[in-house]
Design a protein around this nucleic acid. Structure first.
Lengths: 196, 196
DNA sequence: TTGCACATACCAACTAGTATGTATACCTTT
DNA sequence: AAAGGTATACATACTAGTTGGTATGTGCAA
């Protein structure tokens, strides 16, 4: 077991605990007991609880969310199909647990944005990225005649992200995978409106 | 100062504190210090912290959210106009603080649904209500030829709520009232699609 | 004189964080 | 290659400050 492994194991479990309990509900003691390590190990890698949360955002959440949206820059194909494909995949792959625990990004956004400016800014980077890359893809679509020329690309991209997060949230209270599927479907219908 | 007043003063401040800090971040000590009362008063009215949270949902959040949607049952006028009017009002009246602190309902949904089944069920009642009354209004619209006959009213109502919550969430991280306005506008455009 | 509406004082359990010890790998010097 | 020093990667034990909750007392109105 080398150092990198331990750090990543810690981060992984912290992510899971935050996903379920929120950052304020995160209990470092619970996680380290679960991992079979001690406080010495934890505080060797992270100076504080806040640092753990920020590391989870930067090293786990941000990469996993932005991977797809960044890939839009080089992706070939109709931007609306690409975006719809991604949403469809989210919908298809969502497990009951994914729905019950909600979107990790959205959870942290709702909880931490008003409480900690460092958190908010890190989360904003992710959200901005998702919207930005989607909007750029749509803009290229406009330029290529694939997307209606009067489309407000940023507004559509932003609403797509909002609809997605909202779909997670509603499904979470209702504890209903079907609700998620239905709402994503409505979002897909919405996106279709902008095809040229 | 009679008893009812004290109870409601407590509940009101608890709501504010929860709105900002979340339920897990709620500190009873902070609130009672703020109100100038003591633990004796607090625990005279509420047996536990959970009871406070549930009372806030049942007595403050639920009535304030469902008031409009219940009113749809007797409301005259085009259902799409009624729904759009409500969203437009939310958009117009939203203060920077409303956006920064987010939607109280959505905040609690994200935080508490996986943690406490009592909370989830109380919150689900509110969310179900919003969707249910909206869907019924749309169905009456279908019957009266105001709404397209092939409309999946529940799906549209559900997505409207999701879009609304999503709009709050995105605006919250971005700390942008404009983002909220834009996303609500997109939601209004979406609703317009179903006018007969 | 009984019950309601609080106030006061207190506590047990937790929780992030620290101070300190130690085994081991690695690197340098002789 | 052996010796010796040093940084890394943890483990152990402890603490200070919270935090929800309780036990008990008290003024007052009906």
């Amino acid at each position: 077991m080398n150092a990198t492994d331990t750090r990543e194991r810690i981060l992984g479990r912290m992510f899971q605990d935050i996903h379920k309990n929120g950052f304020q509900g995160l209990r470092a003691d619970r996680v380290i007991a679960d991992l079979g390590i001690t406080k010495g190990a934890l505080y060797h890698y992270f100076p504080s609880k806040d640092a753990i949360g920020l590391a989870v955002i930067a090293e786990i959440i941000e990469p996993s969310y932005l991977a797809f949206f960044r890939s839009l820059e080089q992706a070939k194909g109709h931007p609306i199909d690409l975006l719809k494909g991604h949403l469809q995949e989210l919908s298809d792959k969502a497990s009951p647990d994914d729905i019950y625990l909600g979107c990790p990004l959205n959870n942290l956004v709702q909880e931490m944005s008003p409480l900690n400016e460092d958190f908010r800014q890190r989360l904003k980077v992710v959200m901005d990225g998702m919207i930005h890359y989607s909007a750029r893809a749509l803009e290229r679509g406009v330029a290529q005649g694939q997307v209606k020329s009067d489309t407000d690309c940023t507004a559509v991209a932003s609403f797509m992200v909002a609809g997605m997060e909202g779909a997670y949230g509603v499904a979470k209270v209702l504890k209903s995978l079907n609700s998620f599927h239905r709402n994503i479907q409505q979002l897909l219908n919405y996106l279709e409106l902008f095809r040229a």
